[in-house]
Amino acid sequence: MTEYKLVVVGAGGVGKSALTIQLIQNHFVDEYDPTIEDSYRKQVVIDGETCLLDILDTAGQEEYSAMRDQYMRTGEGFLCVFAINNTKSFEDIHHYREQIKRVKDSEDVPMVLVGNKCDLPSRTVDTKQAQDLARSYGIPFIETSAKTRQGVDDAFYTLVREIRKHKEKMSKDGKKKKKKSKTKCVIM
């Protein structure tokens, strides 16, 4: 069974824990209790493949930012979460993405942009803004509501699919490099 290491990042209060708990335990946590770091595991079937999701729910508070490099190193894919009623959390996505790329030393890291709290009427981040940002990053965008469960499975499952595509691409690139290195030079 394939294991996928997913990391949920975003500013404090955007609903990272609520999304994760909704996926794992099928219930909505409405009281806000700032996370330092929590880890969850769940076995699911995605596109006919049974897999184990190892999900790291991270601290959004700035005082825990020193811990970010460590979990970013171990993560295979990242859910970059903002709240649709919090423009600052949307603007912060850029910083999370840049930090992930720096730590992973790669421009090509599996990510999904997630606009959470889409059940709320007080939207300050337009869907088109988020779609445009995701398009500019070359990553999928999904709106979710941890409260109603809308888009929750889709967000995590899409990230797994992005990781699969990335692994497939990397193995193809690896095979191309191996083929090239088999060419021999004969000096007579």
Rank of each mutant, 00 (worst) to 15 (best):
P140H: 03
D119E: 11
C51L: 14
D119T: 14
V44A: 11
S136Y: 11
D119M: 08
L53Q: 04
E162M: 05
D57W: 00
V9T: 15
A130T: 10
V29H: 09
D119H: 04
K178A: 07
F28A: 00
Q129R: 08
D108E: 09
R97V: 15
G60E: 00
V114T: 04
K178G: 07
K42R: 13
G48E: 10
K175Y: 11
G77F: 11
Y96Q: 04
F82P: 02
Q129S: 07
G10H: 02
C80I: 08
N26D: 09
V7I: 04
R97C: 15
A83V: 03
F78W: 06
S145L: 03
K101W: 10
M67A: 02
S122T: 10
V7M: 06
A11T: 14
D154R: 07
D30E: 13
E37R: 15
S106W: 07
D30K: 07
T127G: 07
D153E: 07
L19T: 13
V152T: 07
F90L: 07
R73D: 05
Q43V: 07
G13N: 15
I187V: 09
T74N: 12
A59F: 00
E91D: 07
K169I: 05
R73P: 10
F78L: 02
D57L: 00
R68Y: 01
Q131K: 10
M170F: 10
V186D: 15
V81F: 05
S122Y: 07
Y32D: 01
V114C: 06
Y40R: 00
N116Y: 02
D92E: 10
K169W: 04
V14A: 13
G77Q: 02
S17A: 00
A11F: 14
R123I: 07
I46V: 11
E76R: 06
I24H: 11
D69C: 05
G15V: 03
T35C: 00
K184D: 14
E107N: 11
A11W: 14
K178R: 07
A83S: 11
T2H: 13
Q22W: 04
V152I: 08
A59G: 08
V7Y: 04
L23R: 12
D57P: 00
N26F: 09
K177V: 05
D126Q: 06
G10V: 08
D126R: 06
T124P: 10
L79F: 03
T50G: 07
K16L: 00
Y71I: 03
A18E: 01
D132I: 05
L79D: 01
V160W: 07
D30M: 07
G77T: 14
H27W: 15
K165D: 05
V112R: 03
L159T: 04
T2M: 15
P121R: 09
Q61D: 15
Q61T: 09
F156T: 04
V14C: 10
R164W: 04
E49I: 09
L19I: 11
C80G: 06
R149G: 03
V186M: 14
Y71G: 14
D33G: 00
V14G: 12
D92Y: 05
M67E: 01
S122I: 06
G12H: 12
I36V: 01
G138W: 03
Q43Y: 05
Y137M: 07
L133N: 15
L133P: 13
T127D: 10
H27S: 15
D119A: 15
P110C: 04
D132V: 07
P121M: 05
T50W: 07
L56D: 06
E162C: 03
V29F: 15
Q131Y: 03
Y4C: 11
R68Q: 03
G10Q: 08
L133D: 10
S122D: 10
R164K: 03
T124C: 10
D47L: 07
G77L: 10
V112D: 02
L120C: 12
N116W: 04
E31A: 03
V186S: 15
D57A: 00
R102F: 06
M188T: 08
G138R: 11
Q129P: 13
Q25D: 15
Q25K: 06
V7R: 14
L120M: 12
K182L: 05
P34N: 00
I142N: 04
L120S: 12
P110I: 04
Y71W: 05
T124D: 11
E31R: 01
I139W: 04
G10R: 05
K16T: 01
A59L: 00
T20P: 00
K42H: 12
K172L: 04
D126C: 06
D69A: 05
I84D: 15
F156E: 01
V7E: 03
G75Y: 05
V109C: 07
A83E: 14
L113M: 14
V8K: 02
E37K: 15
E3W: 05
A66E: 04
L19R: 03
L52E: 15
S145W: 05
D154E: 09
Q129Y: 15
E37L: 15
A66D: 09
N116I: 03
M188F: 08
H94E: 15
L113C: 07
N116A: 13
S136G: 08
G60K: 00
L6D: 03
Q131F: 12
E143G: 13
T20R: 00
K16F: 01
S39K: 10
M170R: 08
M111S: 02
I187A: 14
V112P: 03
F156P: 01
I100A: 03
R135H: 04
T58P: 00
K16V: 00
R135W: 13
P121G: 11
Y4W: 05
K42C: 06
V29A: 02
V114F: 03
R102D: 13
K42F: 11
S17W: 00
G174F: 11
H27D: 15
K176L: 15
K180V: 13
K175D: 03
L53Y: 12
K88M: 05
Q99R: 08
L19Q: 12
V160M: 10
G60A: 00
A130R: 14
I139F: 06
D119F: 03
V125M: 10
G12P: 08
R68K: 04
Q129I: 04
K165Y: 13
R41S: 04
H166R: 06
R68D: 01
V29I: 07
Y137D: 15
K178Y: 06
E76T: 13
D33V: 00
G138M: 06
V9Q: 02
K167L: 06
S106T: 13
K165H: 09
V29P: 04
E162R: 08
V103L: 09
A18N: 15
A11P: 07
E3G: 12
K169A: 03
K178V: 06
L53A: 12
Q70P: 07
Q150S: 15
Y64W: 01
M111N: 02
G115T: 14
D105G: 12
V114W: 01
P34F: 00
V103D: 05
F82W: 08
A18F: 00
T20H: 00
M72P: 12
K104Y: 04
C51M: 14
I46C: 10
D54A: 13
G75M: 02
K167S: 07
Q61E: 11
H27E: 13
V29L: 04
Q131C: 06
I46W: 12
